[in-house]
Structures are given as structure tokens and as C-alpha cells.
Design a binder for these strands. Sequence first.
DNA 1: GACTGCCATGCTCATATGTGCATCAGCCTG
DNA 2: CAGGCTGATGCACATATGAGCATGGCAGTC
Lengths: 332, 332
Amino acid sequence: MSMAVATAAARRSEPLPDETRLMLRAAQLYYRLNLTQDQVGERLGVSRFKVGRLLDRALREAAVRIEVVHPAARLVELEDALVDRFGLAGAVVVDVPATGSVADDELLARECVAEAAAAHLASLRPVGAIGVSWGRTMLELAAHLRPGWTAATEIVQLNGATSRSAYPTRAHEIVERFGATTGAAIRLMAAPAIVGSHELRDALEADPSVGETLAAARASATAVFSMGVMGPDSVHVASGYLGDADLAALADAGAVGDVLGRFLSLEGRIALPSLDQRTIGLPLGELRAKALTVGLAAGTGRGPVALAALRAACVTVLVADESTAAWVLDHA
Amino acid sequence: MSMAVATAAARRSEPLPDETRLMLRAAQLYYRLNLTQDQVGERLGVSRFKVGRLLDRALREAAVRIEVVHPAARLVELEDALVDRFGLAGAVVVDVPATGSVADDELLARECVAEAAAAHLASLRPVGAIGVSWGRTMLELAAHLRPGWTAATEIVQLNGATSRSAYPTRAHEIVERFGATTGAAIRLMAAPAIVGSHELRDALEADPSVGETLAAARASATAVFSMGVMGPDSVHVASGYLGDADLAALADAGAVGDVLGRFLSLEGRIALPSLDQRTIGLPLGELRAKALTVGLAAGTGRGPVALAALRAACVTVLVADESTAAWVLDHA
DNA sequence: GACTGCCATGCTCATATGTGCATCAGCCTG
DNA sequence: CAGGCTGATGCACATATGAGCATGGCAGTC
């Protein structure tokens, strides 16, 4: 019953605004009783347009969840093979139906993996402090967390993320939702992911504004993160952390992708130490030391990073789609 | 990981028909990638009408679940009070937002309670044999069960239900969904809920067709059931088990509602022993003996039955809406 | 082989919903 | 206080969806 206590406590502290109450009532009336937006508007005394917008917001804020229950979702053979091969504490491999379009496959894989990860995390019930990273897959995961899925004390952002480009990292949204669903306090890392020099990195990490979060990140027993690919559609490129020169250097060094902004070679080693020293956040070695580390790999081309992360021994539970899992097992 | 094994095993035995695969792909494309039904049809090579029907089926079969996450859903104070007052193992009290219409309130209460019950059951993870009853609330509960929510060996119907009227009890649907989501075998009770005579009841219960299920019902450590009100909209009246004479006699005897077809007085005693002896299924005493009994009470007017059931000591975990819980605590 | 009832399909048309745009209130700024 | 900015509202219209009905294949029956 601790779950109920936690969510209730979290709630009591801020007694939810009228607008949100309205949104939830609208959602109930529309989705549960399937009234039309018109009818809902009549009941609540607002225009149908407003109802539409309320429902929109409910969907975006994940107050309404639409979920496809896929009876054949998990591929136990691959899960077992991964656990055996890499000595994992667990693995979740989901079957992602093909959509016919590459971009959509990517999206769908992210959704399916995120959903499975949310469910698996809930079954693991990590307590205490939980460290999280950011990125598209993490955002999706956050959206799939259910209120009260576990009772944590603190959610800590594991690596820097303040974007320098128009493309936002939305790291705070992710951390906030983890916090809101668990009743935990949150701790953001107010720093870029990658800076220009080793010295600046050290100075920032030494400053309390970043350093305290970093210390909390070190202290957390659990970490949840996604794996990024390298290349023009990488989140780090889109967010402006990596320029062409960095990308070229990484490619030369054999980097295949990143974990918490740390770019790895296929063998699971830091690909470019000079870049690593300009990266703000929990270092790979600290990640390896944690009791529970859940890594998500979703979408085409994630095979190599997943393998690298496994070889780097910084993942104890892998959540991946079928093609990624298959690639890893084929190339291990 | 036993959950994955169970669902996978359940799947492997019947490799899901093409039509169902199609339905799931359509649901993915429509709900997850929000394509229009037209676009989905184009991708899958079927007409938009067919897509509409596939989605319809997906919704009805609960392959797509639309859920309103209500951040203020649980009322912990009431839960604690119920646990203390009646010595329960647990209680779940959900806040049901008012809709403005009495009939809709009823519907919504059923939905909210069923959803909360499904979530709570999953967190309890009952194993072995699970006995279940039937009724509108149970049907709703069954629809909210997620594949792999627990790993049971057997799902047993606890009381008779073959309908004699046009209004179907849908007991088999309920039991089947419990079975399908847990990978368990199912055992139906092929008998009416209430028959005309004590002797016929005994004869039916002695017959292997009913007796074996009844023995399994006795043997199960867990029971899940809903509480019914007495009156013209009772499921037993709608299904044709109770006529006007029976209703009048029950009213005279002070019956307030039923648990597994056993009508109780407000004090928690069998209201009308002569009727009880014509009722097929697990008797109240056997229910009391179980380790875990989860009782659902949803909707207006359920207060009295809920109190009766609590006094009868046949509930260890109560799941109810706020008004029911409040009524019970006011009148205890 | 003709008949018949059944079910899946696709159609038309009414309805429900989303989008872009004009409007307007509130609020900061000079 | 004028001006202008921002965010919320409602509208007209284009589009998407659902309901009822006609069609046509198909299996079972005589």
C-alpha cells in the first residue's frame, strides 16, 4: 500500500488546479462514457472546441493513455539468450510489428520498447534514488510511467542536457514525470551535455549547481538510460552539442553510439577520450558500479551501441526491440 | 520473468490468427502512429471500412485500452479506516468524478473500480487457482486485466450462471479472459445460479459436471467477486433467476444484496436460508475460509451489501468507490 | 444444381472532429 | 494611456469517422 501513500502524498502537496480537474472530467466523459465532444462540452459548460483542446492536452500530458495490448509482445527466447550470453539480471525483447515505412518503424519501436520498459521497471520496483538520462526514448518511457509505479525518494538527472539549439532536450520533462509518478523529489543537472574544453567541464562539475546533482547521481543505486546512435540524426547533433568536426573524429575513432553522452567503440571502450573529458555527467565507470542499470535500445541501427554497452558491462537489464536483440546476438 | 514465460507459453499453444494480427497492426498504425483509417487501410491493403471494423473489434476485445490516469484516484484515508475497522488485509478506494447523470455515474464507478481492482490484483500477484464470480463489474474487471498480470494455474468459476433469459451473464467471457491473461486453464460452472428446489440444487452439485468445478472452487486459495444489489436492476433479476415472489421474500427477510448469489442481511447473515439452499456455487462459509478474497463494490446503493459482506467476514480486500466506502464507515 | 440464410464487404450519407484564422481580453512597456 | 504582445476563445470549413443498408460470395440443405 506504500504506492498509494506515495501518490497521495505527492498529490496533497499540490491540490491540482481547476483546469486540470476539468481536463480529467472531460477525459472521463469522452473516453470512458464515449460521449461526443459536444455533449461533454454541454455537461461541463464549455464549448466543444475547448473540450477538444482539453482532450488534446490530456493526451499530450499522458493523462489519457491509449495502449495497444500486443499478446505476442515478448520474445522469450531472445531474452534468455541475452541473459545467458552477457550475464544480465534480465532482458526484455519486444516484437515490433512492421509498418511499411522506415521512419514509422523507428517511432513504433521507440513506443513499444518504452512501454515494455515502463512495465518492466514497475515490476522491478526500484526504490531509493533513481538516476535517469534523457532523449526521445526516455521521453516516451516517461510518458508511459503510471502514477505510483514505484516509490522512489529521489529522481536524479544523470547527465547534462541544456540545449544550445532550438531543438529542446526536454530533460526536465522526463525527470519531472519520473518524479510526479513516484512521489520523489527531483534533481536536475543544469549544464550542457558536452562543452568545449576539459577545463570548463571540470569547473562546471566542481560548481555546486552541477556538482551536487552529480554526487546524487553517483549515490543512486539505480540508473535508467537509453542508447543513442551516432550520426546526423543523433540527439546530440540535433541539440547542437556535436559539430561536424566532432562527428568526424568520432567516426575515425570507431564510435558506434553513446550511453549518457559517452561515446563507445564496438568493443565497449570510450571511443574518444578527449571528447569524454568534455562530457558532463556520470562517467561510465560509475555507471558500471550500480546495482541496477536499465538500458533501452530501440530502433534500427541500435544494434552496435547495444552491443558496445553490453561489452562495457554498464547494463544489467536490457530492453530492446527484436531486430536490435537479434543483431547483438549475431555479432557477439 | 515468470510473467513473460506464461504469456509466451500461452501464445505458443495457439499462434494467433491472421485476422488478429491484422487487427493489431491496424491498431498500432492508427493509435500509436496516428494515421487516419484511410492511410492504415492503404498500408495494410484493405478498405477503410474494414480498418474501422478492425479497430472496433480491437476496442471491444480490449486489445486496445484507453485509460484515464487520474492522479487523485485513491483515497488513502478511507482505505486505512476500512482496514482498521474491519481488520482487512487491504482496501482500495477510488475517487469517481461526478458526471452529472445518475446512470453515467454508475457506469463510471464500475469502470474506475474495475480498473483499480485490476491494478491491485496485479500487485498482489495471486498464484495457483483463482476463483471468480460474474456480473457487470466482473466483466469490466476482466476487460482491464493485462496479459501476464499474474501466473495462475487455474481459473475457476465460483457460482452458477447459465442464463435463462435473453440477458446473458457472460460468465464464460469473464473466466476466459482471466484464463487468457494468466495462461491458466479454466473451469466453468455449467449450471444456473439459482434453481427451483433444494433437491435439484443438491443433485446438480453432486453431478460431476458441476461437482468437479465446485471442488476446484473450494480448493482455490484466492477468490475475486463483486457485490450485487437487490432490486429490479439486479443481475439476478435481469438474468431470470429471481422472480417477484423471491424478491418480495428477500425484501421481507431484510436482504440487502448478494455475494456469489448468496443474499445477505445488513448484519452479514444469510437472509433467506430457503433461497440459499437453492443457490448453486461456493457457499459463504467456504469463501470465508480462503486466504485471499477480493470483493468489489461499485456504484450507488452498494454500501449496504458491502457492509454486509464485511460483517460476514468474507472479504479480505475491499475495492470500492468513495461513496460506498463512506457509507460503510458511516454505518458500521 | 437451385435455394437460402449468413456473413463479410463496401457504399452513401449524417455526424464528429481537427485546423487555420480572426477576435478579444489581459498585461507588460514605453 | 496608447501600443503591442501573448495566450485563450470561438468560428468556418475541410476532413475523418460511424451507422445503416445493399451487395455478393459462400456453405449448407433439399
